[in-house]
Every structure is written in C-alpha cells, then in structure tokens.
C-alpha cells in the first residue's frame, strides 16, 4: 500500500472517531471516503495486518495505539496547513482544505512545526474547520492597533482590490502616515501627504502598518 493512502485511511478514521465519538463501521468509512465497500474492506484488512487497525465482531474499525498516533499526526498537519492557507495566505477554505490534503503527506514534520509556530494558537484537538477569527496572528498591526499620534509606515493592504481610493489618496505600502485621531468606536483620522482622511473601522483594519523608525 502506498504510504499516502495509509495516511489518508488513518486520518479519516481519526476524524470519524472524533466526529462520532465511537469507532466507525466499514460502511461509514466507505461513505466518508466516497468509495465502494469492497475495495475499502480490502485496504482495511491490509492495515489490520500492518498493526494499525483492529476489526471488531460488529464490523467496527478501531485504531490501535500505533495507528491512532500516526493518524492524529496527519490530522494535526492537515489542520496547521489549512490554517496557514486560510489565515496567512488568505485562501478560500475549500481550496485550503484541498491543498492541505495534498501537502500533508509530503511535507516533513519539522516544516509543519515551524508553520505552527508562525501561526500561534492553532486550535488543538477540535475537529472543526479552522476558525477564521480569534487567534493571535503574528501579522503586523493594523491602523486599529496603534496609538493616537503615532507615525507609521504602511506595510501592506489586505483585500487589495478594494483599495483604489486609498492608493489615490496616498495610503500605499511604504508611505509614512500619522494616526491623528482614534475614536472609541475605532473610526480613525490619518494624516497623509498633509491631508486629513477619515476612515471607517473596517477600512482602517485592512491597513497593515509598522512604527516609523
């Protein structure tokens, strides 16, 4: 059996077990993987021989300690990659999950661990799709995170396509701007090229900045 196929089986079984709270039966495994029962049964018997699985009398498939360890390793890798793709690279969740499925088999553990350190707070042990909000990203601060009166340099803008007017007014990567005013409701006024520009919170939140030296 190809190692990546084995990893896919163990990963799916872990996910199924977490989802259902009990070991899966063969039919469920086949449905989950969208394959026919006969070929799944054949693969599972092979995995039983290699000591990753046990089949109960009722047709339930249980992971051995070894199999579970291996499966969870892949699950974690998948999650970290998916988080990285959605949160850091801004990919769509579907595409992120698809690409994570490919990369999880080839990327060495160490590289994934480094990625995990980059995106602090990847939720452990929850078999849910990566939440889009609420983790501490090591992204640069936005205009909303800095103090009134600070001079900053624009690093980048998120959602670049919508930022036409910002670029025309001079809010561009590399530009020095001063945060003139920040209201308690996060509306801000910035000074760019000698002009005061008022921005709504959602716009200010897409301007990534760095304190000017």
């Amino acid at each position: 059996m190809d190692p990546s196929v084995r990893e896919d089986y163990l990963e799916s079984l872990c996910n199924l077990e977490i989802k259902q709270g009990r070991p899966a039966v063969i039919d469920e495994v086949a449905a989950f993987l969208d394959r026919d029962v006969d070929s799944v049964l054949k693969d599972i018997l092979e995995l039983v021989q290699s000591g990753d699985l046990r089949i109960g009398d009722d047709g339930s498939v249980t992971l051995t300690a070894n199999g579970r360890q291996e499966g969870m390793r892949v699950v974690r890798k998948h999650r970290i990659l998916e988080c990285f793709f959605t949160e850091m690279l801004g990919m769509e969740p579907d595409a992120a999950s698809r690409d994570a499925c490919v990369l999880e088999h080839d990327l060495p553990d160490e590289a994934v661990l480094k990625l995990k350190n980059l995106i602090k707070g990847c939720p452990p042990g929850k078999n849910t799709p990566c939440p889009r909000r609420g983790w501490t990203r090591t992204l640069p601060p936005t205009l909303l995170d800095i103090e009134e009166g600070t001079e900053v340099v624009v690093l980048d803008l998120m959602y670049k396509g919508r930022a036409h007017r910002l670029a025309d007014l001079g809010i561009l990567p590399g530009e020095r701007i001063v945060l003139r005013r920040k209201l308690s409701n996060n509306s801000v006024v910035v000074e760019v090229k000698g002009c005061d520009i008022a921005l709504s919170p959602e716009i200010a939140g897409m301007v990534l900045v760095e304190k000017a030296a």
Partner: peptide, 8 residues
C-alpha cells in the same frame, strides 16, 4: 457595505 474614506 464598504466603509468611509473621506477627506476632512
């Protein structure tokens, strides 16, 4: 909904 970008 797109927020405000307004010159003061």
């Amino acid at each position: 909904q797109f927020g405000m970008i307004l010159e003061m």
